[in-house]
Design a protein around this nucleic acid. Structure first.
Length: 490
RNA sequence: GGCCCCGUCGUCCAGUGGCCUAGGACGCCGGCCUUUCAAGCCGGAAACGCGGGUUCGAAUCCCGUCGGGGCUGCCA
């Protein structure tokens, strides 16, 4: 029997990293077992759904590289894979269950229910539906509905009864139906609830493994009983531990970036995100941290997912992103950095500029943790008006700066072939003549040429920037230093 | 409150009765390298929540306790 797994996000918010992790584990298991990975949109919450969120989620899945075999956008034997297109099916299922007396009409209004809930809470009684309408004879219920009275459909939880199942990650779970109330299947306006739609789809789409967040563990007895009432065999469940914020609470906005899209914009590589997410609750054999996707697929197993929640630690993701950036070929690096450089410069680069960028790329690559850092590092190569960081200037331009800059200009003017080794030789002999160490003597030049105390290696930077620009910038800096000295005297 | 899940360094994982004086990774601290910043290399601090049992022997099994989390909606 072939495995069929799905990710069923609700488009009620942007793609969350937790959704990403759940999707990844489903995908890994599907690929590992040679099964089918399905993307379904669980959009039964009309009030909160939005097309933008759906687009964001789909984009996030694609960015992560989690391709799907059936589902939204790619089709398959089950229609659009969007629940809002199957309301008729769910209604039919609910009514059938009523006919078979596995469900019943409930005439309690939301306001009434809220009042009774409050009362129960005040009296220290357990909340949950009290079953008031469960005993209404079906003939009477049909008559009342016929008279126009609004009614929801509730599932008749088999009581007394117990649901027992073997969760792939949690192990044996046993819940007494005494603690599971008669939940709503169909709202009084005819729309299905999550429980109905999701379970019906899992049955109709022949989902073999349901791997989802642990927050749904308490709902699982409902889903299993519903599945059984539908005459189907229950899926194998795997409840994944939740992802927490650094304070141990469920990961949310106040913990920083929780949206996958935010990480795209912040310059993360999908490979790094996938690798990091795969380690949240799972680990391949041995002491490895950087795992290839092929190895993850080969080694992944839902049964070896850990049972305890994981804190999302961005500093480890950050480190991993640097690792992945460094592992890129120069061509791949340039391709990945391209949109970020353009955004940073605010314009497209000319072919000649791309050429220069390609020359300096290997040096920049090993200094890059986020793709957003590339632009600022290379900006000095592509601008006529160099912006000099005032703090950096202040720090390095001492009393002897004018003399140093003058010496550098004189020395560099003599360089016959403008390339790295010649420039280095020339500047080193200058340092020797001035009796300066490299740290003292080169930092002012770095600031004059790149605008910052932090830059790619100076000699290469000069070589790639070109003789004229380097000399011009050094001359500008010297002029500025001289003017400042004059101002000081007045 | 009730029901359910969980409990190894700050964090993510390894560990499934003896190989554990508990291992790896991130982070942190110190050092080396060095034209800045990174990267790299070397070293260090850092954990089995607590209490009982079972056993020759427990991080590993059982019970209790404490702590954390989830659910408790005509949200998902």
């Amino acid at each position: 029997m072939t495995t069929r797994l799905r990710i069923a996000p609700s488009p009620t918010g942007a793609m969350h990293v937790g959704t990403g992790r759940t999707a990844l584990f489903n995908w890994l298991y599907a690929r590992h077992s040679g099964g089918t990975f399905i993307v379904r949109i669980d959009d039964t919450d009309d009030e909160r759904n939005s097309a933008e969120f759906e687009a964001d989620i789909l984009a996030g899945l694609r960015w992560l590289g989690l391709d799907w075999d059936e589902g939204v956008g790619v089709g398959g034997p089950h229609g659009t894979y969007r629940q809002s297109d199957r309301y008729e099916r769910y209604r039919q299922v609910a009514l059938e269950l009523v006919e078979r007396e596995a469900a019943y009409f409930c005439f309690c209004t939301p306001a009434e229910l809220a009042r009774r809930r409050d009362e129960a809470a005040a009296a220290g009684k357990p909340p949950g539906y009290d079953g008031r309408c469960r005993t209404i004879p079906i003939s009477e219920a049909i008559a009342r509905r016929g008279a126009g009275e609004a009614a929801a459909v509730r599932f008749k939880m088999p009581r007394p009864g117990v649901t027992e199942f073997d969760d792939l990650v949690k192990g044996k779970i046993r819940v007494d139906h005494e603690h599971v109330d008669d939940f709503v299947l169909l709202r009084s306006d005819g729309r299905p609830t999550y429980h109905l739609a999701s379970t019906t789809d899992d049955v109709d789409y022949e989902i073999s493994h349901v791997a989802r967040g642990e927050d749904l563990l308490p709902s699982t007895p409902r889903h299993i009983q519903l599945t059984l009432a539908l005459g189907a065999k229950e899926a194998t469940y795997a409840h994944l531990p939740l992802i927490l914020g650094t304070d141990g609470k469920r990961l949310s906005k106040r913990h920083g970036a929780t949206g996958v899209t935010e990480y795209i914009e912040a310059g993360y590589l999908p490979q790094a995100m996938v690798n990091y997410l795969s380690l949240l609750g799972w680990s391949p054999a041995g002491d490895v941290t950087i795992v290839s996707l092929a190895d993850s697929i080969r080694l992944f197993d839902l049964a070896s997912v850990s049972t305890n929640p994981a804190v999302f630690d961005q500093s480890k993701l950050d480190w991993m992103n640097g690792e992945y950036i460094r592992s890129l070929s120069v061509v791949e690096f340039l391709e990945a950095a391209r949109p970020f450089v353009i955004a940073s410069m605010g314009r497209e680069l000319s072919p000649e500029e791309w050429e220069r960028l390609a020359r300096i790329a290997p040096l920049v690559q090993e200094r890059t943790k986020f793709l957003t850092e590339v632009g600022p590092q290379v900006r000095f190569l592509f601008t006529d008006e160099l912006e000099i960081d005032p703090i950096a200037w202040e720090k390095v331009m001492g009393d002897d700066a004018e003399e140093l800059l003058g010496a550098a200009i004189a020395e560099l003017e003599l360089v016959a072939i403008w390339e790295h080794d010649e420039i280095e030789r020339s500047l080193r002999s200058m340092l020797e003549r001035l009796g300066l160490n490299a740290r003292k003597g080169l930092q002012p030049l770095r600031v004059a040429v790149t605008g910052s105390t932090v830059s790619p290696p100076l000699f290469e930077s000069m070589a790639i920037l070109g003789r004229d620009s380097v000399l011009a910038r050094l001359a500008d800096a010297r002029k500025r230093v001289a003017n400042m000295a004059q101002d000081d005297h007045r």
